[in-house]
């Protein structure tokens, strides 16, 4: 059974180029079946009716698959309930009269655009360096034309689960995009279609990651804890192997 709870919301407010600050709002009579974003919608309706600027936050599918939403909730990315995006976090996880602190995903490479919206285009820039296969493949081929081992197909699918939300970067004590890049490199390195370009792919993607000011991996695994899709650090080991192999090849 759902119930109604009251929440004190302490949210980061900031306009681009200005200093940010936390502001406190009351969220009254929130249904515990509401999602976190629906609670934010209710608060925003109240703010709009009161003639105030609503809290800006990014969202799209609200089904946990698009990678748009995300914030530090009580100090944890996506509120850090195992493998849950912010849109899939529900208010039943909170207590009546609890204070919830919401801060944007922060890293040097993620500048705040407005309130909880940060510029994650750096991740897209890394993808542009090789997160694709650059040949026209036509329509889908017959499935058994290229036999692929079940374990490899599964590992590639696991890596491909990454939705690019940026939680790994925001959770990393070094603001590194290693888990993201590792997932993207892995999904191609594991499949034959990705092999012709694998050397150049890993070099270019790592170079872009460094150029954009993402940090270095110190193998503390905060990224894997934060990942709403359960991307494993096994992919980082694979990225390191791919990089070493690529460096040894002319």
């Amino acid at each position: 059974m759902s119930e109604k709870i009251n929440i004190t919301l302490k949210v980061w407010r900031q306009n681009r180029g200005e200093e940010g600050r936390f502001e406190v709002y009351q969220a009254q009579d929130i249904d515990t079946d509401a999602s976190f974003l629906e609670m934010m919608d209710i608060v925003n309706e109240g703010l709009t009716l009161a003639g105030k600027e609503p809290i800006a936050f990014e969202h799209d599918c609200r089904e946990g698959i698009c990678g748009c939403c995300g914030a530090l909730v009580n100090g944890k990315t996506h509120g850090s309930h195992e493998q849950t995006t912010l849109c899939q976090l529900h208010m039943r996880k909170f207590k009546n009269n609890e204070q919830i602190v919401v801060e944007p995903f922060r890293a040097h490479a993620f500048t705040v655009i407005k309130d909880l919206i940060v510029d994650r285009s750096g991740l897209d820039a890394i993808i542009r360096e090789g997160g694709y296969v650059s040949v026209k493949t036509g329509s889908a081929p017959e499935a058994s034309t290229t036999p692929i081992k079940k374990e490899l197909a599964e590992a590639a699918m696991d890596a491909a689960e990454c939705i690019g939300c940026g939680a790994c970067v925001a959770a990393c004590p070094n603001g590194a995009a290693m888990l993201f890049t590792a997932a993207k490199v892995s999904q191609y390195a594991l499949l034959p279609q990705g092999h012709p370009e694998r050397t150049q792919r890993v070099k270019n993607m790592v170079a872009k990651m460094d150029e954009l000011g993402f940090g270095n991996c110190s193998n503390e695994y905060e990224c894997a804890v934060a990942c709403p899709k359960g991307i494993d650090v096994k992919n980082i080991a694979r990225l390191n192997r791919e990089f070493i192999k690529a460096s040894l090849v002319k």
Partner: peptide
């Protein structure tokens, strides 16, 4: 030094138990 810059200030972030004291 690069990691200090890349991290950016986070006001409320809490480390998970994953992050060992030795690593920190």
């Amino acid at each position: 030094l690069a990691n200090r810059t890349a991290h950016d200030k986070r006001f409320t972030q809490k480390s998970s138990q994953e992050r060992s004291l030795a690593a920190k």
